[in-house]
Amino acid sequence: MAALTADTLEGGFHDPVFQSQAVFRAVMAALAEPARPVPLPPSARPPAPLTAELGAVALTLADPDTPVWLDPALAASDAVRAWLAFHTGAPVTAEPMDAAFALVADPARLPPLSAFAQGTAEYPDRSTTLVIAVERFDTAAGPLFTGPGFETPRRFAAHPERIGFLDQWAANRALFPRGVDIVFVADGLVAGLPRSARLATTE
């Protein structure tokens, strides 16, 4: 672990109880009504390239019980590793298959969704939740999603998007109830794509 610096100690929640509750409710709302960006209250100030939103979700959900996988952009930063270790206590794993959470700062180079834990038929919850920072959401264009949480299908895209993402998502949905869930974060927003969300055009 990197040496403790002021940067490591700073930037956590100043009010952990209420800030983590507010972030949780935003993430819960995002997963309950997928493909619909909802406001994520500003809170954490982690070192780059960990974004404020990635940091806030990590502070809210990760702890010593949840191995976290970092994408290469994050894993390369000692400051990021030290900050996460200090504020969450979550062990970092190099194996996506072992991760409860995957933090992704560079979505264009996201590994295939199938590289992460998919859960089992009997315990589909033993899967990875990917938390992916993107630049923006597009709810005007983009493919139509539907499923639980949709009153009617919604258009949704998260940019930048990994090439072939939609094919991967269709494959992930085909594994249901196994599969991964995605929490996308952008500037001040969070949008969920739980494994239950399916492309309206392919089924």
């Binding site: 952990p16 109880v17 209420f18 983590s20 509750q21 949780f24 993430v27 819960m28 997963l31 309950a32 809210t60 959900l61 702890d63 019980d65 949840t66 409860a100 315990y123 589909p124 919850d125 899967s127 939740t129 639980p148 949480g149 249901f176 109830p177 869930d181 739980p194 494994r195 239950s196």
Partner: peptide, 30 residues
Amino acid sequence: YSFAYLDEQTKRMIRRAILKGIAIPGYQVP
């Protein structure tokens, strides 16, 4: 005392289970 009685680590664990439950409607998350 803790807000709403439970300590923060317990709340995190329950919150993670709730999110899995939402992602897999009707599945019983331990």
